[in-house]
């Protein structure tokens, strides 16, 4: 993975981006309603798959906008990129 296609700017060197980790994590707005185990799940437990991974990226040295990508973590091939708010792309089943 030498380049990443930013959905706003197009293909750019990987050096311009910052990884934001697993995408689509949902933070409960009333965290005081969560049990310790549920809170630990949100804070610490991650999918960490060997295969398709939905993740966030930040184009820090470019448009400075966030977006999502689906990448195969075994081959580091990016399968899709999509903007925040858009549904996880069709590519990932």
């Amino acid at each position: 993975m030498l380049t990443i296609p930013c959905p706003w700017c197009g293909e750019r060197d990987v050096h311009e981006f910052r990884s934001g980790g697993e995408a689509h994590l949902k933070r409960e707005s009333r965290t005081d309603n969560l049990s310790d185990a549920e809170w630990a799940d949100f804070l610490f437990l991650r999918a960490n798959p060997k295969g398709e991974h939905a993740e966030r990226w930040y184009h820090v040295h470019g448009c400075r906008r966030w977006f999502n990508a689906v990448r195969n973590t075994h081959t580091d091939t990016i399968l899709a990129v999509y903007k925040p708010g858009e549904a996880k792309s069709e590519v990932s089943q």
Partner: peptide, 13 residues
């Protein structure tokens, strides 16, 4: 390398 990966390779940067 800052992203999750199993590629045993990593980026040149």
């Amino acid at each position: 390398d800052p992203y999750v990966s199993y590629s045993q390779r990593g980026g040149f940067n």
